[in-house]
Design a protein around this nucleic acid. Structure first.
Lengths: 235, 235
DNA sequence: AATTTCATGTAATTCGTTACATGATTCC
DNA sequence: GGAATCATGTAACGAATTACATGAAATT
């Protein structure tokens, strides 16, 4: 019964904290906006939503009314009054308990939080995370990666002679990737240390752009934006 | 029943092709030597081995100390001298059919072969792969990644304004990782195209061509698979 | 003698997908 | 009016893990 996915649950709560949504949209956000998350299927998402409702963290609201979303062009559907109403587009909204629970998840840094996908999920909601927690997560992740590097180096030293060039190259590239992420984390940690606190954005996201003063905030990287209004998600 | 993991099966076959092993050691090789593979647990590995045996691709041989061929039920005397009784350490050996099957898997480039873990597994056995297949895999992987990049760019362009700095940074780092892998693939492809494989950080210059007749650029492929043991004790 | 490491397995559980159903709305 | 997309769900299956159980060999 309990489809407690951990990361899915966390991500859903986090997204709904920003604004209520229905399942279909939620899934798109999971796939595209958060970029990192692998595509969860409906078979995963909907049951998960149900358990979250059962836990009291979400409530379902019927929302057939297109008042909230853009009523694009004329030619409207005939009758607005719906006795046999439109099929309920269920919008999920975070309850107070849900909010509290999410808050708790945010501040809880278990040893799971350093793993690949877990870490990405945590990071994606850093905007709503306290600074000291952010620090713990970043440093935890870093030492997790350093452990991994240690093992890779040891293994490489042990087996170097017996492996063919391709296997060696694969390991080399893998190690370089990890090293690269460590450097990235170093930058982030440094940036957290020297920068001033980054706000916990309210659910109504006030996208206040930080001053490019360079004494705080995230490290600035080059920005490549091709104007490309392409169609969206994978299938 | 059919614990057909795909990548686990492939990796097991590939490792056993190099030399027979028992499960415990196999698992270690899976985790450390191949570096990339995530750690499969015994609960996954042993059942998998059984299905491979049932398929006729592997045979189990009792092994232990050289002289001893005692069956599993043996476990007698265990007395003084060098006559033994190790608990049946089951060594798995590739059958001729298994070899054939692995060969087939190697040359079969389905659209699965471009995915992350699948690709890593394929690459790990490039030493035993024909050059044109290597090319297909590398190029397939590259275009897979380029697709992914396209989507990320598009998604980023669409949502840039609404995302906070951390989410943006996460996406940026993710994209850079993908771009980096594309560059890596470009190098590899170039290297394949121009014949000999020469990459940095490989202490062995090691240009030795031991594949007769074809595909000039094969890195050293050591084939220490013993000749077919003509035994019909296979299950 | 006791502990660790090697070695093999099984049962229950977790996490997630595919394929299947259904229906409403919008685009052409 | 037909296709595509939006929208919600369920049942069956798949892949892999964890926890459990066992036992032999090497190390201390």
């Amino acid at each position: 019964m309990s489809r407690r996915s951990g990361i899915l649950e966390f991500a859903v709560l986090g997204l709904l904290r920003e604004s209520p949504m229905h399942g279909y949209e939620l899934r798109k956000r999971l796939n595209t906006s958060l970029g990192i998350f692998r595509a969860f299927s409906y078979g995963t998402l909907y049951p998960c939503l149900k358990t979250l409702v059962a836990s009291g963290w979400l409530i379902e609201e019927p929302a057939g009314d297109p008042a909230d979303t853009a009523p694009v062009t004329g030619r409207s559907t005939a009758s607005s009054s719906s006795l046999t109403g439109r099929r309920a587009k269920i919008v999920y909204r975070l309850t107070a308990e849900g909010k509290e629970h999410f808050e708790e998840l945010l501040s809880h840094t278990g040893p799971d939080a350093w793993e690949d996908e877990h870490f990405a999920a945590r990071f994606a909601f850093f905007g709503q995370t306290e600074r000291d927690v952010r620090m713990r997560v970043l440093e935890g992740r870093r030492s997790r990666l350093e452990e991994r590097l240690e093992k890779m180096r040891a293994s490489l030293a042990r087996t170097r002679e017996r492996l063919d060039d391709y296997t060696l190259e694969l390991q080399r590239h893998g190690m370089e990737s990890v090293e690269r992420e460590v450097r990235w984390l170093n930058e982030l940690i440094e940036s957290e240390r020297s920068g001033r606190d980054r706000r916990r954005s309210s659910p109504e996201g006030s996208a206040q752009q930080d001053t490019p003063g360079e004494t705080g905030g995230l490290p600035r990287h080059r920005d490549n934006t091709p104007p490309d209004p392409s169609d969206d998600t994978a299938k």
